[in-house]
Design a protein around this nucleic acid. Structure first.
Lengths: 77, 77
DNA sequence: ACGATATGTAGTAGGTCTACTACATTGATC
DNA sequence: GATCAATGTAGTAGACCTACTACATATCGT
C-alpha cells in the first residue's frame, strides 16, 4: 500500500467468487502471476492501469465498478 | 513505454485542450508534477490506476473514455 | 492419514511510474 | 529583438508494481 496515499478499494474477490473461479484461474486468464491477484484482493497495492483495464474487461464491467477511491457499499448495491 | 506490452492510448490532450487548460493547470488540479502530464499525453508511460481515476474524475468521464488498449477513433465519436 | 486445492506470508529482483531540476524550442506579444 | 507561456528533452532518484520461489495453513474428498 502506498505510504502517503489513501487506499484503493476493489471488488475483485467479490466478482471472482461470484463467477466461481479461483485466484489461479483468474491470474491465468489475466496473464499475471497468481500471487499478484492475491495482493490485489487484499489491497496490498493497486494494480497498474493496464491490469485494471484487463480485469474490468474480464468481468465485463466498467473500471469504476471494480476499483474505487471510496469504499464500496457492503451489500445489495 | 513497457517493452513487451502494447501501448495504451489516451485522450488526455484532447480533453484538456477541449477544456482550454494548460498542462500545468491540469497537473496542479491533479496534484502531480506538470511533466508527468506531458509524459502521459505523449504516451511515454501509463499512469497508475489511482492517477487514472483522478483524471477521469476531473474530466467527469468514465476511465474507458480517457484510456483504452485499442486506438481511439480519429474524430467524431 | 493422505493428497489436492485454495489461500496467506515472506523474501528477492527488476521494471515502471512519479518527482524534480535544468535547458531547448516554438509561438505570441510587446 | 526581448520576453513570456507552453511544450519537449534529458537526466537522476525513489517509491511502487509484478514475477517468482518457497513454505505455512486450512479445507475438502478419498
Amino acid at each position: 500500500m502506498p505510504v502517503g496515499a489513501e487506499p484503493l478499494h476493489n471488488r475483485i474477490a467479490l466478482l471472482r467468487v461470484e463467477r466461481g473461479i479461483s485466484r489461479r484461474d483468474l491470474a491465468t486468464a489475466l496473464g499475471v502471476h497468481y500471487q499478484t491477484v492475491g495482493y490485489l484482493e487484499r489491497g496490498e497495492y493497486s494494480p497498474s492501469l493496464v491490469l485494471a483495464l484487463q480485469i474490468a474487461e474480464f468481468f465485463d464491467v466498467p473500471v469504476e465498478a471494480v476499483f474505487s477511491r471510496r469504499p464500496f457499499p457492503p451489500l445489495g448495491s
